[in-house]
Simulated scan of single mutants.
Amino acid sequence: MKIYNIYENINFDKDKEIEELIFENEKIKILRTTSLNQVTDYYDQEELEIVKIVQGSAILEIEGKEIKLKKGDILPISPHQVHRVIYQDHVVWLCIFVKN
């Protein structure tokens, strides 16, 4: 069993988000993602995604609606809810994907 500390070894890249796999099996995938100010492409995912802002702030666009998130906020994104990140400021995300 490996212990992963979400607050340790945080790195940012000015050119891209950094995704780190924390855990994965046939039912769930957990990532830590760090982002400075990147705007993402649109996502249309098969699985439920639950995001938590560990640090920083962000604005997501989900099916045309803007949702502001700050440290501590948790947001479930249903399968096939088209979404993207339109603003980020030194964000550390905890992303949990529940596979179908």
Score class of each variant (00 low, 15 high):
T34A: 04
C95P: 01
I10D: 02
I28K: 01
K14V: 09
E19H: 14
E26W: 11
T40P: 01
Y4I: 15
I67D: 06
T33A: 07
K52T: 15
M1Y: 11
Q45N: 07
E63Y: 10
V51M: 11
E47F: 13
I18T: 04
W93N: 00
G64P: 05
I18V: 12
L60Q: 10
K29E: 13
V51K: 06
T33R: 08
E47T: 11
H83A: 01
T40D: 00
P76F: 11
L94R: 00
I3P: 03
K52L: 11
V92K: 02
I22G: 00
K16T: 10
L94G: 01
E24G: 06
K27W: 01
I74K: 06
R32M: 07
D89T: 05
Q55C: 09
Y42I: 08
K65I: 13
V92L: 02
L94V: 14
E46F: 04
L21W: 05
E19A: 14
G72Q: 08
L69W: 13
S35T: 06
I96M: 15
E24L: 02
N25W: 12
W93Y: 13
V51Y: 04
G64L: 08
Y7T: 13
L75D: 03
D89N: 15
G64C: 08
E20R: 04
Y7R: 15
I30Y: 03
L60R: 06
Q55D: 09
R84T: 06
V91A: 07
I28A: 05
E49T: 05
L21T: 11
Q81N: 08
V91Q: 03
K29I: 10
L36F: 00
N5R: 12
V39A: 00
V98M: 11
K71L: 03
Q55G: 03
E8K: 15
I30V: 13
V91R: 03
D89P: 08
A58F: 09
W93L: 05
V39L: 04
E49L: 00
V91F: 03
L48E: 13
E17H: 04
Y42K: 12
S78N: 14
D41F: 04
L48F: 06
K14Y: 13
